[in-house]
Amino acid sequence: MTNRRTFLAGAGIAALGAVAPGIANAGTTDRLKSLVDSQLADAAGKGYPSLVIGLFDRHGQYVAGTGDSGQPDGGRPGGRTIYQIGSITKTFTGLAVALEVVHGRRRFEDPLQRYLPGRLRLPTWQGKEITIGDVATHTSGIPSFPESWAKRPDIDWRDPYAIFTLKDVATALRETTLPREPGKVFDYSNLATGLQGQSLAIGEEAAYESVVRPRITGPLGLRDTSTALTGEQCRRKATGHDETGASTPDWHVRTCAAAGALYGTVDDLLRYVRAYLAPARGPLGEAMRLVRQPRVAVDPARNIGVNWILQPLPRSGKQLVWHNGGTGGFRSFAGFCPGSGTGVAVLTNIAKEVDPIAVELLDAVSGP
């Protein structure tokens, strides 16, 4: 989830400090430690205020961090340091939708309009309605950030979603003309996923929490994955930085909470992606299997399931299931390879991508 406006260029930031001691599980191999520590050392001097990486294979897990997260408790960044995870939130929303499908309460072919509050009227294409599946695969045609929103004189681009209410969403939908028939072309949309959240009776962040906590984060034991932090969690939260290295506020996604409102940790994200590799019996496990099935081609190399992207790793060719995220001051990546039983999570507190780090690590640990 990213801002539509490019941040102004400015001064750089200090280089990363020494690598923090990693947390190794009993079965951790020297290979995992070597791979992660090498990436952290390579990141030094590349502008990351802090960086935390977690990597696992079938034999163990290793988590380590580097830099200064600016967290009030003064601790060195690690697996329990809290960051905004941005659009990785969408995978939780997709899983909540899949649970509705598994329980028989809705179908991907159903019009999304059927489940929305009355004041939110979706545009149609020559009478064809946008379906739940169209939104889950980013083929709805709904803009990610409406032009009328971008023109608001009171918008604060450091926290661009904060001012928008359900009334603003309704107005934007009335002004939207779909560019094509829904279900045909992948076109990533934060607003559409926000509407998927509204269809689950999710309003702002607190209401999103009331849906996700009992259905997903609670059962999976993700104690630090939340839209609202406790006092203790706030003391573990990293300070975000924009592309210039200046500190910047957290984003408050409000009515589009389902698109990017969650905070999280590397420890939680590793637990989360592990659950997809060995889904438990029952509705949640069935939903986890459902969301990682390919539904629509993004391009010749990639497909999308339910808010998860699927593509082969560049060297090993193993299938990678992944999502990344970004707010004004944070970047994130979580992914796993079903064929090799491996997974990765990377978090940083600056608007600087971490995708290449994550992909390189998974490719190395998922090799032939």
Rank of each mutant, 00 (worst) to 15 (best):
L55D: 11
A24C: 04
I23S: 08
T81N: 07
Y83W: 02
Q71S: 14
G74R: 07
H59R: 05
F56Y: 14
G67Q: 04
L55A: 10
A18V: 05
D57H: 04
G22F: 09
G78Y: 02
A26Q: 14
D73I: 08
L40S: 04
G60H: 04
Q71T: 07
H59T: 00
G74E: 07
Q84W: 04
Q84G: 05
A26V: 04
F56C: 09
L32V: 14
G78D: 15
P72K: 14
A20L: 03
G22C: 10
G22M: 09
A24T: 02
Q39H: 11
Q84Y: 10
P21T: 15
L32F: 13
I23D: 12
L55E: 12
P49F: 01
L35E: 13
T28W: 13
D73R: 06
N25C: 03
D68E: 10
A24H: 07
S38Y: 00
L40R: 00
G79Q: 02
A18M: 03
Q61I: 01
P49R: 01
A20H: 08
D68R: 05
S69Y: 05
P77M: 08
T81W: 05
S69P: 04
N25I: 00
D42H: 04
D57Q: 03
Q71C: 10
L35T: 10
D73C: 10
V63I: 14
R76E: 09
D37W: 03
L51H: 06
Y83Q: 00
R31H: 14
T29V: 15
D42K: 11
R31P: 09
I53L: 02
L32S: 12
N25V: 00
G79H: 00
S69A: 15
G74V: 00
L32H: 04
F56P: 08
Y48A: 00
D57V: 08
L55K: 15
S34F: 14
T28N: 15
S38P: 01
Y83T: 03
Q84I: 10
R31L: 15
I23Q: 07
Q71P: 01
Y83H: 11
H59G: 02
P72V: 05
R31V: 15
S50Y: 05
A44M: 00
T81C: 12
Q61Y: 00
L55H: 12
G78W: 06
P72T: 02
R76Y: 07
L32K: 12
S34H: 11
G22E: 11
H59N: 05
Y48D: 02
G78Q: 08
V36Y: 07
A44G: 02
R80K: 12
K33C: 10
G70Y: 09
V63K: 06
D57T: 11
A18N: 10
R76V: 08
